[in-house]
Design a protein around this nucleic acid. Structure first.
Lengths: 204, 204, 204, 204
DNA sequence: TATGAATGAGTCTTCATTCAT
DNA sequence: CATGAATGAAGACTCATTCAT
């Protein structure tokens, strides 16, 4: 009768994920989760602190992957500004984005479109704000390392980069683009972005 | 004791607007509006059909202004593709955007960031979708009028234009940019966009 | 601007009748009546004491006609038991019922099927109960006048007569029978009833 | 402090039943039920989906019994037309009706007289309509099995049979007839009905 | 007479969470 | 770990009616 510990936890998470996908965070009640998963309503609270924590648990991998992606590029050990013109680096970046989307497609959709009412409902602005800070700091480091480059972009400009990356993600996810289509869109976007930065850095 | 005709209506609207700004559409209850405005709860329903209608009434001017802006540029009597390179036209467009933002700053913020739970909660995607349709049709007309131009942009590309315009608005509003800053951002954005289109049209 | 006294009254009544027909007594609010009739909500109360009184006013003629019909047959100056076997009398009775239905079809439908929530919602049982009393008294008189007849019917039997008459009315009204169909149904019913009474009176 | 499992459910049902009997479905609010039963208002919703479901739960046995009765007589394995003249069969039928009434007296009264506003408020017409369909189909089968009989009754006539049976029930219930009185009324009614049918079938 | 404003009690239902066992 | 029971505040909205002018 009694399921093993881990099974229940997993059952709650899987059920919740399905429900959230269908009806969004606010549209799902704890009762729904209880009924659908077969786990007693109050027993759920033995595994999670509440609805929000369930949601965050589901989204954790996606959120982490987003953070990782940001850090891999603009963290302490991130790329150098000079790699921008390296075609191989770009190709790798496209692959990275695609992998991120492929792996977390479902949860990213939750995060982007179905988080209304949860503590992650402002993820878009939180991420872009955070990203702006990180990138600014990375810029500062790059400026020190490459004094010959013009790197005095406005905060707003940097912010818009994050926002636009987000837009691309949202487009790809909301239109359920195929791998090929996704690749094309990302490539186009990256090319545009890199070209833009290059020009601005060398003085356009 | 008895307030004059329109005063109550106005009082409800003003109170609601303040509350919505503070706590967002969902965060405000009809009770709140009643208490804060001093208008009896049920009496509110003599002026508005419900919470959503109050919200829409507040936002109506902003929504209308957005639609007008779209139509002035891409409607039946909208601009011609050839005007893109006209500096005067661009300057006027910048002014238009700025006027729109200046006039409707508060309500646009409501519309963009605080509409969760209302019938306008999907305004972003609704507007950009609608905009895409309008622009596609405008493109068709431009193609006929200017056969020499390459105007076979993908729907996704067109869609992204709308989205990005929205982003600009959101940036300006969420960071409460000053007039000067706003002008600079919009100008930069327009220049970028126009340059992009020009290149693509003449064959890049 | 101001309509003549009687016109407003009539306007309220006519509007209400239409609304009641569509949505039943409970389904119509005073606001509905006000909006639809163009008479200010509170002004209605200058003409009628409330919703119920409006309803009763509409139904008054039908209710009165029902009462008249009952009295013509079983009141102080009603028919004699002996007339039951008179074909002419029966024909006249059929005509009477049909006239009643023809004249008051709409309002009877209101009274029978749409009075839920009003003070007339129990009209069916009130009428049949009242009818039972009247008929019992009439019986008493007939017994005195015609001692040779067996007229000791149970109260319940008398009551059922009223109920069944009501059923006939309801059938005719709810199925919107044509004049011909209505006539046939009523005739059949009367014949059955008369035959039944005759047999019981002379000893079956 | 804590009541046992089923007690609460039962308590809600019993309290509600009493209240419904006094004030009818519409006249009873969930608050009333909560106060009277001592069960917290919202807690009630842990046991029932809403007021209507409480009502239906109370009436379920009576409704089912009505359906069963109909089916036992006119369903696929129902009686044959020829049994009408069988005295034993008739006696059994009387007993059945009486049992039905005895067992469900209270709830039938609710169903017939106090259901205004609930999803069962049209039970009378729904049952008689349904009954008409069932009986028509039964007639068709009887016609095939007994070609010698005249069985071409009009739909209206069949419908009236159902209605009249209902009337009997309503009479018995509304006047709280004793067992003896009930038996007499039902017997009389059945005799009348059977005699009627017999005559019509053999050609009157 | 006419009206716009106001009332206030009332409706059912939902919800995330906690408690006692 | 598991559960059924319980909570209590909150939600939007309706209605017939009355009041002040």
């Amino acid at each position: 009768m009694r399921e093993l510990n881990g099974n229940i936890r997993r059952s709650i998470l899987e059920t919740s994920e399905k429900l959230f996908q269908k009806k969004g965070f606010s549209g799902v009640s704890m009762r729904d989760i209880s009924k659908e998963s077969g786990v007693g309503l109050s027993n759920i609270y033995n595994y999670f602190r509440g609805k929000d924590e369930i949601f965050r648990n589901i989204l954790a991998p996606a959120v982490e992957a987003m953070e990782n992606m940001l850090m891999r590029h603009h963290g302490e050990d991130g790329m150098s500004m000079l790699m921008l013109t390296d075609d191989q680096y770009c190709a790798r970046t496209v692959t990275e984005y695609m992998t991120l989307i492929r792996r977390h497609r479902k949860t990213l959709k939750l995060l982007f479109f179905k988080a209304e009412g949860s503590s992650l409902s402002n993820y878009r602005s939180e991420f872009t704000d955070h990203s702006t800070v990180v990138v600014k700091e990375w810029m500062r480091r790059q400026r020190e390392a490459n004094p010959q480059l013009r790197l005095d972009f406005s905060e707003m400009f940097i912010h818009l980069q994050s926002v636009w990356l987000f837009d691309i993600f949202e487009e790809v996810l909301s239109h359920d683009l195929s791998a090929r289509e996704t690749e094309r869109v990302i490539q186009e976007y990256l090319r545009f972005e890199i070209e833009g930065w290059s020009k601005m850095m060398t003085g356009a």
